[in-house]
C-alpha cells in the first residue's frame, strides 16, 4: 500500500508491529482460556448421547435441567473472565467498566466459542461430555431459545472462522463501547478499534474475502436477541421456581442479574 501523507516508513513499521502484538496477545489469550482444545473436540466429535441417555435428560424436571445448564454456563464464564483479563488493556480499564463489559458481553463470547463445539454433520453441540441434539434440552421448556442457539451455531460454523479470527472477533465483541453505563467509552472504543484492525489484517493475510468480516458482524443482532431471550427465560424461571433460581451458582446470578 502507498505510504499515507505525513506518515514515515518507521511509523508504519511501528503500527504494523503494534497490530502484530495485539493479534498475538489476543490469540494466545483465547487458546490459553479455551475450555476444550480443538484436538480434544475433534477426538470427541463422534461421542454422542445414545437414545436412552437423551431420554433420561428429556425426562428430567425443568429445575434439574436449568440447574445443570446454569453450572455449565458458569464454568464457561470463568474461562471467559480469564480471557478478558489476559487481553492487553482490559485490566487498565476501571473495574466498573470491566464488570460492565463482562456482564454484557460474556454470553456473546460464549456463543462465538460455541461454534467450535458444534458438529454440523448431525446438528449437535458439545454438552456435558458428549455431543447432543436440540431435543436433549427439551426439559428446559425453552424450545425457541434452544433452536435459536442451534441456528446460530449452524450459521457461525458455516463462516468457518479460524481460531485467530474467532479470538479477535470475541475480543472485539467483548470490547463493545456501546454497552450502557460505561464510564470511559473512549478508552473502550480505542481498544476495540485496535482489535478490529488486527482482525481485518488477519483476514487480509489469510486471503479471506471482505465478505467474511461482514458475515461475522451480521451475526451480532441474532446473538444479542439470544442474550435477551436467555434473560427473559431466566426471569420467568425465577418467578416460577424462586428457590431453585436462588441455588444457581453465585457467578451465574451475578452476571445475569439486571
Amino acid at each position: 500500500n502507498p505510504v499515507p501523507e505525513g506518515c514515515s516508513q518507521l511509523e508504519i513499521g511501528h503500527t504494523f508491529l503494534h497490530i502484530e502484538r495485539i493479534t498475538q496477545n489476543v490469540v494466545k489469550s483465547h487458546i490459553e482460556t479455551s475450555q476444550f482444545s480443538t484436538e480434544e473436540l475433534r477426538r470427541l466429535a463422534w461421542t454422542f448421547y445414545n437414545p436412552e441417555e437423551t431420554h433420561s435428560y428429556i425426562s428430567r424436571s425443568a429445575e434439574t435441567m436449568w440447574q445443570k445448564c446454569a453450572v455449565q454456563i458458569t464454568n464457561a464464564i470463568q474461562y471467559i473472565v480469564e480471557f478478558a483479563k489476559r487481553i492487553s488493556g482490559f485490566m487498565d480499564l476501571c473495574q466498573n467498566d470491566q464488570i460492565i463489559l463482562l456482564k454484557a458481553g460474556c454470553m456473546d463470547v460464549l456463543l462465538i466459542r460455541m461454534c467450535r463445539a458444534y458438529n454440523p454433520i448431525n446438528n449437535t453441540l458439545f454438552f456435558d461430555g458428549k455431543f447432543a441434539g436440540a431435543q436433549l434440552f427439551k426439559a428446559l421448556g425453552c424450545d425457541d431459545l434452544v433452536s435459536a442457539i442451534f441456528e446460530l451455531a449452524k450459521s457461525l460454523s458455516r463462516i468457518q472462522m479460524t481460531e485467530e479470527e474467532m479470538a479477535l472477533f470475541s475480543a472485539a465483541v467483548l470490547l463493545s463501547p456501546d454497552r450502557p453505563w460505561l464510564t470511559d467509552v473512549q478508552k473502550v472504543q480505542k481498544l476495540q478499534k485496535k482489535v478490529y484492525v488486527a482482525l481485518q489484517r488477519c483476514l487480509q493475510n489469510k486471503g479471506a474475502s471482505e465478505e467474511k468480516l461482514a458475515k461475522m458482524v451480521s451475526k451480532l443482532p441474532l446473538m444479542r436477541s439470544i442474550c435477551n431471550l436467555h434473560i427473559d427465560k431466566l426471569e420467568f424461571f425465577r418467578l416460577v421456581h424462586p428457590e431453585t433460581a436462588y441455588s444457581f451458582p453465585p457467578l451465574y446470578r451475578e452476571v445475569f442479574s439486571s
Partner: peptide, 20 residues
C-alpha cells in the same frame, strides 16, 4: 461492590480456573 462480589474476586485473583 457487594452485588458483583464474585466478579470482583475473579478480576483481582491472580490464580484462575485455567491455571488450576
Amino acid at each position: 461492590k457487594e452485588k458483583h462480589k464474585i466478579l470482583h474476586q475473579l478480576l483481582q485473583n491472580s490464580t484462575s480456573p485455567v491455571d488450576l
